[in-house]
Design a binder for these strands. Structure first.
Lengths: 162, 162
DNA sequence: CCAATATATCTCAGTAGTAAGGAACTTGTG
DNA sequence: CACAAGTTCCTTACTACTGAGATATATTGG
């Protein structure tokens, strides 16, 4: 597509290896930054006996109301077996309940129980504040720029896999 | 420190919530981008029967030579039990071997075997090319900028945990 | 030198997840 | 209608870890 890549029999090894080195460095830094920020989130929710994935389910239901399990799965990005397991656990903790779906009897809703709703009202704001604190080494403008770059990168990488 | 945060009794809720929303969005986009890129890497090394973590160990030894297990652990960022398990597996595959350390008999080196060296010579270049492809939605300049922002973010978030 | 502490690896039990396949149900087609 | 194909969730078996504690060795201060 771009003029730089139209020919393949005359390569420029030096430029190629500079590109490779840049990409590899980015890969490492991206993984570490994500891990570091996730650890902040994880430490925070662990104080309430929750994992990040459990919290992500609660957060989706908190902000969007009852969702079909498949919808939750798409938000949380976990396998189908994983979402069953997650909702089982949250049901065991009394924070979430399954409800029937009239229109499609294969499907089930997940919904916050009253206890789940109460818990989220209490712990979501400080959790959000902790995420904000973790990001606060960057200015708002930098955070927006970073978000834009990561969105481009993420959707391009996603589309490579299907 | 900064002029905006010197006072705590007069807040600006609107600005606070804009900051929170930006930070939360960044958190989601960061996690997804990292997952998407890691999936590319993972799919690539899976063709050779390796996990990302196994490949990371091989790569460290390939580029730096024999390393103490603790040093490998710091590079790959897994628990102490995890590094033992990883090196066990790679030893089982004949790609890595443990060696004694004269100066400190508690410690052990991990080193590539000849088979490990051969394998890495063969699979590292196409792996690097795949990472480069996954990043190629961004220009080189954007990749460098992204790296700089992520480095800032990552080390700040790290220092919050100790 | 001895005791206390620190360090490096390993062991073991437990956990969060995946992947593949199956049961129940729905939808589309002849 | 009847049947094939698709979907929604669940089950099962497995995997890659983590975290706490054990073991062996090293270091430090008295």
């Amino acid at each position: 597509m771009s003029p730089d890549t139209r020919s393949s029999d005359r390569r420029r090894p030096a430029a190629d290896s500079a590109e490779t080195a840049t990409a590899l460095k980015l890969f490492v830094v991206l993984s570490r930054a994500a891990t570091a920020v996730q650890r902040q989130a994880s430490d925070d929710v662990a104080r309430h006996g929750l994992t990040i994935s459990e919290f992500a389910v609660l957060e989706a239901l908190f902000h969007k109301g009852p969702l079909l399990l498949g919808e939750v799965q798409r938000v949380v990005l976990v396998s189908s077996g994983g979402i069953t397991f997650l909702v089982d656990r949250l049901e065991g903790k009394g924070l979430v309940e399954r409800r029937e779906c009239q229109e499609d009897r294969r499907a089930r809703y997940a919904a916050l129980t009253r206890a789940g709703e109460t818990l989220m009202r209490r712990i979501f704001p400080p959790h959000a504040a902790r995420i904000r604190a973790a990001m606060s080494a960057l200015t708002l403008a930098q955070q927006r720029e970073l978000t834009a770059l990561l969105r481009t990168l993420g959707s391009a990488a996603d589309s490579l896999s299907g």
